[in-house]
Each structure stands twice: as C-alpha cells, then as structure tokens.
Nucleic acid binder design. Structure first.
Lengths: 162, 162
DNA sequence: AGTCAGCAATTGACGATTCAGTGATTTTCC
DNA sequence: GGAAAATCACTGAATCGTCAATTGCTGACT
C-alpha cells in the first residue's frame, strides 16, 4: 500500500481532517452571513442580497458601461441566470436595460434613480450587519489578515482555471 | 443632517466602500471554491458537494447518533431541504435512515459502507483542490490567521441570534 | 463579397432549495 | 393525569439558479 504520512484509511479519519473541518467553517460562515444580510435587506429595503450586489457593481463607476456578460462574470452567475435576475430587477424598477450602441449583441444595464436610492439605504443595513459580525469580533490586524488571505485565494481561483 | 464621518451620500460612494468590496471578495471566493469542488466531486466520485458534507458529518464520530434535525442545523439547511437531500442520498445508497429508538418523531441517518468508501475517495479530491487554492497560495501564518478569523465570525453568528 | 467560427442574450426544461402548513409525537406545566 | 405548547419529519407550491439549445450579430479569413 505504501501509504504516505497523510493518508486516510478510515472514514472517521477522513471526516476529521483539519482542512475538511476548516473549509466547513468557511462555508458555514458565509452562508449564515449571507442569510442574515438577505433577510435584513428584504425586510428593510425590499431587495435580495444578490440584487444588492448588482447595484453595487453598476454604481461603482457611473461612467462605466456594464454589459450583462460582465455582470455575470463579476457575480459568478451564468448568462441565463443574469438574464432572469435583470428581468426581476427591471420589473422592480431598480435597473434599466439599454442596447449597446457599439455592438448590437450586447445589452447594457444601468441603475435607475430608484435603484440608487435603494442602494444607499441598503448599504447602511449591509454595513451594520458586517460591523456586527465581522469587523466587530475581529481586531484590526486579524481583519486585515483575513482580507489579504481572501485576496490570494481569489487570484489563485481566477488564474488557475484548470 | 449632521452626517457622521462615515456617511455615504452618493450611490458611487456607497458602492466603493471597503467593507462592501471586501465582503464581495469573501462571497466570490467561497462560491468559486464550492463550484470547483462540486464539479470535481460529481465527476470523480458521483456525489455533490453538499452530499460530501453530509457524509463528513455522519462519519465524524461513528458512535454518535445523528438526526435529520442535527444535520439540518450543521449544514445550514431547512428541515425540508434535509428531507429531500437524504431522500436522494438514500436512493444513491450512500446513506440509510433508521427510526430513533428513544423518540418516535426523529429519524436517524447513518452512512452505509458504500457511503464510507465514497467519502474516502471524495476526501482525497477535496483535499487536492483545497491545497491548490487555499493552503498553497497562503503562508502557514496567513492560513492560521484566516481560520481563527472564521472561527470568531462563526461564533459571533451563532451567539448573536438577534 | 461570402462564409464560417464565435459570442451575447434569451428560453425551455430541470434541479435544489425555501416557505408555509400538516400530522404525529413529546414535553411542559398546571 | 391531561391540556397546551413545542418539536420533528414531510409535503405542495413557489423561487432562483443551472444547463443546453436557439437566435441574432460580429469579425476574421479566403
């Protein structure tokens, strides 16, 4: 068998590994956080969390023209998913579609005034929750380490496509 | 108006805040990671990532009796979601339902031998991806800081239910 | 010019999850 | 000991996403 030192032979061993446990922590933390934010935003601002992320992306640079494809990549959604998400947001009046003047295949998306107002209100709610559950419990240094770690993981994920 | 120093007045300001951007990083990192793991596990082991998490939980302590409710809480799913997930896993033969001897409302779930074998294979795939995208890009110290930060966030989320 | 490969958005079919409500059982409390 | 409240699993309906196929458009190559 020539098992290396890290080999797991029983299910119990495999289920107790450090990496497994710690990745579980990552997943749980983010899903719980997202659930809280989602619930709060729905209740207080009438939008879902993913809609909030769309508005963030659209308003980040008001001069930028954002296509649905860009939106899909930045939010980690498929193009079909974006089509339907923008449908719902357009219906809600927070966002508007506009054909691209330079390429008739692409449709651009922009926030409406109502969308901008909603974003402003939602940002406050969002910040409140994050301060309570993320920046609050962490020291400044811990938080800084946390975000640089995330940064590295994200680049590794984007640059290592295989 | 008496706006504080951190007040955001325009949508562009609100969309460019540090917290907002950094929380976005967290979300993207985890969704991309989960997508990769999910794809790899489906392809190489025939299970989804959430099924993997179920097996992990069930095999962690072979002596423990795990109810569907416990499973739901630990995986951050609703009871309805767990019912259907266990349905699919039972059908696939990785898991078995058993009525609790002490409380006729609860049904216990345990991994079958096939489930344990699957877990062993899946754990290898899982570890490979994590090493590549998480522990690889980070130094030991960074990684340690990362996990303690997650730990704090999780306790804050669990203990602060309001 | 003409074709052809490739990309953007959309859509139908499907999958997985939530929500809200139900029935069966247990626990609590008078 | 018995009524009321809580808890567990399950279900139908709805939500939100994916996947795969389709359409319209662009750009590159001949």
């Amino acid at each position: 068998m020539a098992a290396g030192p890290g080999e797991k032979h029983t299910a119990a061993q495999a289920a107790s590994g450090r990496l497994v446990r710690e990745f579980g922590q990552l997943l749980r933390a983010t899903t719980r956080l997202e659930q809280r934010i989602n619930a709060a935003l729905r209740e207080e601002c009438g939008i879902s969390h993913v809609m909030f992320e769309v508005l963030i992306r659209l308003c980040r640079d008001p001069a930028e023209q954002v296509s649905q494809r860009t939106l899909a990549e930045d939010l980690v959604l498929t193009s079909g998913g974006i089509t339907r998400l923008v449908d719902r947001m357009e219906e809600a009046g927070t966002v508007r579609r506009r054909p691209s003047p330079s390429d008739r295949r692409v449709t651009l998306v922009e926030a409406t005034p109502k969308g901008e107002r909603t974003l402003l209100a939602a940002a406050r709610v969002h910040a409140g929750i994050l301060e309570r559950y993320v920046t609050g419990p962490l020291t400044g240094e811990e938080y800084r380490g946390f975000t640089t770690a995330l940064d590295r993981i994200n680049t590794a994920l984007r640059t290592g496509p295989a």
